[in-house]
Each structure stands twice: as structure tokens, then as C-alpha cells.
Amino acid sequence: MRIALFVTCLADTLFPEAAKATVRLLERLGHEVVFPVEQTCCGQMHVNTGYQPEALPLVRNYVSTFAGYDVIVAPSGSCVGSIRHQHPAVAAAAGQAGLAARAHDVGARTYELSELLVDVLGVEDVGACFPHRVTYHPTCHSLRMIRVGDKPLRLLRHVRGLELIELPDAEQCCGFGGTFALKNAETSAAMLADKMTAVESTGAPICTAGDASCLMHIGGGLRRAGSPVRTLHLAEILAAT
């Protein structure tokens, strides 16, 4: 299958290993990955911070970049949520019904990585091997916006050598929330502290998730606290052999 990669601005710039892993994983499974270079950012930060009109050109850019592809994957539940739910709304609010309809169509063909693997490609065992203890944090937008459910867990359970350790209060937000982490930094840090306590209580040396943004937040906190726990994107574990 020919799959277009929407890398997301964050993975492109700061977490390229997650994006490279996505490419390696899909190619290992026998698929062709293409990377349309016109892509930039989904615009979620603008929409969620109250700059909806400013996000409109980003929506237009996403739609025109990916309109020609049948299957699009992004290694982020949050960006996929924005593309699927916010893009049509941004276009509609700007009175652009045609763009809204196209955004809806392209959004319906845009999948988060675990959705693509389980729902579209029909695989749960991706042939990965990762002999470590791992705990999984379900990110809020994966969980409640696009409802990936237990798909990431099903994928992780099939990874050879991986010991999955349940994260207490897993469904509690880590406190990232985009610009929330800056505008309400102390509340965000308080939420992060509880998430870090939960992560460390598992004894797992690795915490994984499907969103680089939440991992940047959790990982940044763990490093600041001098914790030995590392964060790793789900794609990196699934790509490991």
C-alpha cells in the first residue's frame, strides 16, 4: 500500500527518530511510504490557542498537500484529532464550505499510527522485538478525541520480549495541553508531577506513548528530576527488531 506520511512539525524538527521509525516500520511491513515535502504543520497550536483565522492557511496547505493520497499516517493522536475534527470546523467558520468538505474527506483518510496498523493494515504483530519493561501512557487526544482504544496496547503485547507494565491512573492527563503548559505552567507541572510518580511507580525503565508532544513534556520532567526513566515513541518500539 502507498502511504503518505504526515510527519508533524514536532517530530520533524525535534523528534525525527519517531518519524524515521514510522517509515522503517511501514517499509518493513511491505508498504511504500511517501513524504510530500509541501507539508508543514496541522495548525493545532493556533486553533487551540485562539488563533483560528491564522490556522486557516495551514488547513488549506494540509488539504492541498494530501488531497491526492488515499491513506495518510501521522505518528500523533493529537495532530490526527486536529486534522479530523478541527480542520473542517476552521474552514466552515471561515465560510469556506468547499474547503470544509475537502478537509473532512482528507481527515477521514488520515490515521494515527496504531489506527493505521490495526484498522487499515489489519496487523497487531508487526514483528518487533524489544526486550524491555515498558509502561504505556494513553494520551488524551488518542483516547478521547480519536478513540484509539486499546490498539496501541494490542500492538505492544505482540512485541517480542516486551514486558508491558500497567500505568496507574493511566487515563489522567499528563498536563501538557500545548500552550497550556506555558500559560498555566504551575498547574501543568503539578499534573506532570503526578504522572511522573505514576510512571516511576511501575518500575519500568521506559514510558511510551503515541504523541511526541506529551512525551516531550513527560520526558522533560523526568530528565529534570534526574529520573532514569526514558521516554520513547510507540513507533520506535514497534520499529525495533
Binding site: V7, A11, D12, T13, L14, F15, P16, E17, A19, K20, V23, F35, V37, A181, L182, K183, A185, E186, S188, A189, L192, A193, M216, H217, G219, G220, G221, R223, R224
Partner: peptide, 30 residues
């Protein structure tokens, strides 16, 4: 690690490290 940034980014660095910026973006790698 530990370097403080000016506001509003100081809100981030008060409790978290910034990620190391990689040498190469995904785009350049591709």
C-alpha cells in the same frame, strides 16, 4: 539541561528540560 528561558517559555523550563534539538530534521534525513 536546566537552562532557564525568558517568559513565557520560562514556564516550561521551570519544571522540565527542553529536548535536545537533533542535528538533522526528518525532512533533511528524508
Amino acid at each position: 539541561r536546566g537552562r532557564a528561558l525568558p517568559p513565557p517559555l520560562s514556564g516550561w523550563t521551570a519544571a522540565r528540560d527542553l529536548p535536545e534539538v537533533p542535528r538533522q530534521t526528518f525532512r533533511d534525513w528524508w
